[in-house]
Design a protein around this nucleic acid. Sequence first.
RNA 1: GAGCCGCUAGCUCAGUAGGUAGAGCACCUGACUUUUAAUCAGGUGGUCGUCGGUUCGAUCCCGACGCGGCUCACCA
Length: 505
Amino acid sequence: MEDTNELIAQRRQKLESLKDEGINPYPNDFRPDTLSAELVSRFTELDKEALTSVTESFSLAGRIMSKRVMGKASFVHIMDRKGRLQVFVKRDLIGEEAYSRFKKYDIGDFIGITGRIFKTNVGELSIEAAELRLLVKSLRPLPEKWHGLTDQETRYRQRYVDLIVNPGVKELFKKRSRFINVVRDCLIERDYLEVETPMMQPIPGGATAKPFVTHHNALGMDLYLRIAPELYLKRLVVGGIERVFEINRNFRNEGISQQHNPEFTMLEFYQAYATYDDLMDIIEDMVSRAAMEINGSCKVEYQGETIDLSPKWTRMTVKEAILKHSDASESVLSDRKKAFDYAKKIGLEPEERWGLGKILTEIFDEVAEHKLIQPTFITQYPTEVSPLSRKNDDNPDIVDRFELFITGREMANAFSELNDPIDQKERFNLQVAEKDAGDEEAHFMDEDYIRALEYGMPPTAGAGLGIDRLVMLLTNSASIRDVLFFPHMRPEEGRKTITDEEKKH
RNA sequence: GAGCCGCUAGCUCAGUAGGUAGAGCACCUGACUUUUAAUCAGGUGGUCGUCGGUUCGAUCCCGACGCGGCUCACCA
């Protein structure tokens, strides 16, 4: 990391010579009183002539993004959090000493300017520096002004540079923030309470996934990074928080891809005296409102497809989806043997211990999931693959559950919650048997969760929404890495991870 | 985890049928008081991802490794 090229050496030398002159290269006593965008919105409509009567002085701070020296006058563009503005620096105005110092400032340095506003001969609104100070000396050169930074790896690893030189990046992350705000608004206006529950859990639950393990030294015990907040949020419903949600990270010890990062952000929300039907309405509202807020339309372009997010969305059962998107006959849907054979026929590797429900789910994933481009709620999941969901009153083989698919990807999972403690215990026992049989993703037994249910959980429905994937959709991003500031990357310099040997110290 | 592709100056990229590497931007020196990819003149800058092999000689050919991108597998 201690690379020293000529350009860095030159800047360090400039830093030293500034210090020799008695100048603090990192002061913190400059207070800008305006922003680039404020000046633009106030004055951009006025012409050159009209601006000559504006004598007010403004203070502005920002990073130098370009610099053009023309002898005894110069132009720089500075960038602050709202945009860019041109600064005109004239020797006659700031004085000979300040001007010759200014000529040594580099692109990337921060400066503070005080002066009046005017328009140049070609009509660009600019601030004329009456005073100019260095606020920060930058020691590393920025990528070039024309092509910018395009190397994906560097953009992810050095997001700070990406943010400086690629303006779209900041815009994207502002959209991400606004999306989360809309989600929060939708729930808070329905009287939900936002909470935080443990990320380090002795028993990881609430999803079928492989957890990360960590260790608590003082307690001498392993802990798991949570794969879902579900069981804790439902404990809160037991406790009387009838409408509750959490937006935060989950951690899953699985592969990395364009759709998967080891840590990702989920919304989970639970509402007592509601069914999964009610949650469909909330999710439709949330996502369509967010689309309007972010893109001004319920129609979004995603990787060449137009997705229409206007409510109401298509609703279809798992079995209907299989029939629609494959050549499976109706008998496959109710006959385990036929389902098993059909699964093999389409290239799956069903296991002997799988029941009809699990097989049908796998068939659905294979044939239908990637075809669900427009928003679609898939309902009536098999009980076998839904250990936390409430059974359907008319058919115990299915549960009152839906998943939401958009662009062929799962965006949300929701169900009426299982609140029968005896049924829940039996389902946990089945999961434990799965685990003993080698399924690393099967649930653990959670005795305390059963105890909580035994006190009584009101009839409740709950949902989980993949925030990152929805942000991808709304920003037309192909990779989850584009919607995370710091996506997970291997260490830069070789495989310098902490070894077991080093861990002992 | 598997396959394919990539890694050359700070950035964006050329290139060498194997003979010590180029451009633009950036940077340095000089000129220039309304420019805007400013302009003009001159200049600096590279263990060509790492290690090994073949060769008189490797950035180029071969192998291993590292990192990344894409595809597939698992998953949300």
